[in-house]
Simulated scan of single mutants.
Amino acid sequence: MTDSAATPPLPNGITYDTNAHGRVILTIEHPNVSARIAMTGAHLVSCRPSGEDDLLWMSPVDEQKPGTALRGGIPICWPWFGNDRMGAPAHGVARTADWQLDSVTVEHQQVRVQMSIPPETLNSLLPEERWAVSVEFVLGRSLAVHLTTRNIGNEPQLLSQALHTYLPVSDIASAEIHGLTSVRYLDKLTDEDRPGQPGPLTITQEVDRIYYQYAGPVRLSSAGKKDLAITRNGCSALVVWNPGPEKSTTLSQFPANGYQHMVCLEAANAGPDKRLLAPWESHTISTTVGY
């Protein structure tokens, strides 16, 4: 977080809080929604519409210590996704960067939060590249995240990214993902390109797939929970990820049974949907989650 003298004043219902380990959280209390955003990573860790369950899953064993990439919520994977860059940290630099708060607007139905990574921070993290990046959260009865990247250099730059959205399910055995019938996907576990499955997608083991050439909505259902509707803009790829029982035991800040209660459905510019941004070109990727 930047110096307090440079941060905008906070409206009523918006506060900075510090957890037990010293991590700074922007806390939002509005008649329609309660939400929390970690300043490091601009990481939305919770969004609970009034009277509803949280729209996001957060690992119950993640202590959310400062400087760490959090397990759950919506990590921002930027400006590369996964292991796209050899020898570089997985999922880019945004998840552990210190973002600044640019503005908070409280509206009748929702709250808008705008954040960015300061230029000096980006220059330090990516000295050979020239980027500007900002994110807008729109939080109310549903949530929306809009991540905007601009190439501010004089050469084209390759961008891959994802809004790594962890969604809750009552039990993965009862979960169904609707909307991906016959959509082709890249299986990251085998590096094979596969035709889409018939009917809704169910998960019985580790899954790591990039569904591509599909920009339509998907719907997540599980027993005893309201269906969640997920829409995307600025991408034709959707990452579906669940670690399964074996990998769950190897992940940091992740309970051994965590795979039973979550699935990631991620708006992504990844795999065949990576983008080459021309000098001064900008691109926005968005995801929305709601009932």
Rank of each mutant, 00 (worst) to 15 (best):
L238F: 02
A162R: 09
C264V: 06
R194F: 00
S134F: 04
G51A: 08
Q213L: 14
R71F: 11
I230D: 00
T287I: 15
P245Y: 09
P49A: 07
D54T: 09
L159H: 03
A97Y: 02
K247V: 09
S252C: 00
S160P: 11
T27V: 00
I14T: 00
S124R: 15
D193K: 09
N154A: 13
H30C: 00
A144Q: 15
Q260F: 00
H91N: 11
D191G: 02
P89I: 08
R71G: 10
D273N: 07
I285C: 03
P75K: 03
S142E: 12
G244Y: 04
L126P: 08
N83R: 14
C235A: 13
P255G: 08
P200N: 12
P119Y: 07
D227V: 10
E136C: 14
G153S: 06
Q197N: 12
T68G: 01
P200Y: 08
P245V: 12
S124T: 14
A69Y: 05
I203E: 08
G87N: 10
G153K: 03
A6C: 09
E128P: 00
L228S: 08
F137T: 01
M86S: 12
R219A: 04
L125K: 04
V289N: 02
A35T: 00
S142H: 09
D191A: 11
G196D: 11
P118T: 09
H43S: 11
E107S: 00
E155I: 02
L26Q: 00
P272R: 11
P195Q: 13
I177Y: 09
S116W: 11
D62F: 02
I117E: 11
M58N: 09
I76N: 02
P118Q: 12
L163Q: 10
R130Q: 15
A173Q: 13
M58T: 13
G216R: 12
D3G: 06
I152D: 13
M1A: 12
K226G: 14
A97L: 05
M115D: 01
F254R: 07
S103H: 03
I74G: 05
N19Q: 04
L101A: 06
F81D: 07
P217H: 05
V61I: 15
S174F: 10
A94R: 02
Y211P: 10
C264S: 09
L201A: 06
L26P: 00
R85H: 04
V145K: 06
